[in-house]
């Protein structure tokens, strides 16, 4: 049988599932997969503080993105704005429940859940409290992470704007900027801390427990 410590020093690449033995690396260095060159792990000091700062900013910009108008169009004096409220109203009015509920979950509920559970778990990790809570949050995150589609929503928004470009005067709202900001922050956060590292930090802070 193989011991737990030996298992801790192994890592399987998420892309090609090659088994690697972890080697200690110096500060700010990264380890890549030998077969497919994907990032395996990195050694960054105070990742929690950095990520926490980014997540707080992301939470604020996400709030702004959903609170205010994203774009306003103007067709010969008739104005219409894209907001979350308008979205709810249109879905209710047109009885598009399946598409509507999917949309609201993928664009609103899941991203908010992800950002706020990240926020909560990072704060708990910083305080070194609530081991079980952090674990449940991490498991929750693993389940809903593939279902957050803010980036795809943004591309769709651009496509929709191009489609309307010929007919309407388009004015970008505050939320559009906030949306871009959220996306950039999301990229930085995923670059800064991987899920694997969150779990590693979890075991480092709380230890193994039943």
């Amino acid at each position: 049988m193989i011991t737990e410590e030996e298992l801790d020093n192994l890592i399987i690449c998420k892309k090609c599932h090659t088994l690697h033995k972890k080697v200690p690396i110096s500060h700010n260095k990264k380890a890549f997969c030998s077969k497919c060159d994907i990032l395996l792990y990195q050694n960054c000091p105070n990742t929690i503080d950095k990520t926490l700062a980014l997540v707080i900013t992301a939470a604020i910009s996400l709030f702004v993105a959903f609170k205010f108008t994203i774009v306003t169009i103007d067709i010969q004096g008739l104005e219409k704005s894209l907001t979350l409220y308008a979205l709810f109203m249109v879905i209710l009015e047109q009885h598009q429940y399946i598409v509507g509920i999917m949309f609201i979950f993928l664009i609103v509920i899941f991203p908010i859940t992800i950002i706020f559970s990240m926020l909560l778990l990072l704060i708990l990790m910083k305080l070194k409290k609530g081991a079980y809570m952090v674990q449940r949050l991490l498991i929750l995150l693993a389940h809903i992470r593939p279902w957050s589609m803010v980036d795809i929503f943004f591309i769709s928004l651009l496509v929709a704007m191009v489609k309307l470009f010929d007919y309407a005067y388009i004015e970008l709202g505050v939320s559009f900027v906030a949306l871009v900001f959220t996306l950039i922050l999301d990229i930085i956060i995923t670059k800064n801390i991987s899920f694997y590292e969150l779990w590693e930090l979890h075991t480092k802070i709380y230890g193994w427990h039943e």
């Binding site: 219409k80 308008a86 589609m149 769709s156």
Partner: peptide
Amino acid sequence: MVDVFVVIILSVLIHF
């Protein structure tokens, strides 16, 4: 999902 999202965005905006 892009196409579905585009349709939903358009249905919210073009609603006169």
